[in-house]
């Protein structure tokens, strides 16, 4: 009886094999969204949103990246503000329930939520702005582009040119 049960369990395990992965995902991929929270950016999806801050910036995940939530007309958007250590050094004031305008690269996570990789933040009331990335999307917390895998821009490669531009070309340029 026990032998049969063990054989059955072995068969189930053999049939149900899946690629091994850590629970927090691989590389800098966020487990919940499936997005590259540490280095993700795509110039093609740059957009601007305006809304009310519903959740103040906080540290999150293995990558210790900073996120806050903004309520917009199109629904809640999780804004990714870069690494926590960089955010801590910024003096840009964010208050809950205050209006804010953000420009950045918009993406939909595998959890269905909208994420915005912030490029520039603006306080409409005070006119205060904070730039986190260059126009091409290069993060300001990375020196000379090292550690920035989001470089490139509109010329950052076609689908037929793997290996160039943003995170290897196909991920950053116009496709």
């Amino acid at each position: 009886m026990k032998r049969n049960l063990l054989i059955f369990m072995c068969v189930v395990l053999c049939l149900w094999h899946r690629p091994a992965s850590a629970f927090w995902g691989s590389d800098s991929t966020d487990a919940a969204s499936g997005l590259d929270v540490a280095a993700g950016f795509d110039v093609n999806t740059i957009t601007s949103i305006a809304g009310t801050v519903t959740s103040l910036p906080e540290r999150k995940g293995q990558e210790q990246h900073t996120v806050m939530v903004v309520a917009t007309n199109q629904g809640a958007v999780t804004v990714v503000l870069g690494p926590w250590w960089h955010w801590e050094k910024q003096s840009f004031s964010i208050s809950k329930n205050r209006e804010i305008a953000i420009t950045g690269s918009l993406a939909q996570g595998k959890d269905g939520a909208m994420y915005l990789f912030a490029q520039r933040l603006e306080n409409p009331e005070s006119g205060e702005t904070l730039t986190l990335r260059s126009d091409s999307g290069k993060p300001l917390w990375s020196r000379n582009g090292s550690g920035n895998r989001n470089g490139g821009g509109p010329h950052g490669g076609m689908g037929s040119r793997p290996g160039a531009g943003f995170r290897g070309g196909t991920r950053g340029g116009i496709r």
């Binding site: 590259d36 795509d42 993406a107 939909q108 040119r161």
Partner: peptide, 25 residues
């Protein structure tokens, strides 16, 4: 400017694929 071969793509008709964007999506 668009760096891809537009004429080739135009002659190719419809093409579709799944691709990972720079955001990881």
């Amino acid at each position: 400017p668009f760096s891809g071969d537009v004429r080739y793509m135009l002659s190719n008709g419809i093409s579709e694929q799944r691709e990972r964007l720079g955001t990881g999506e």
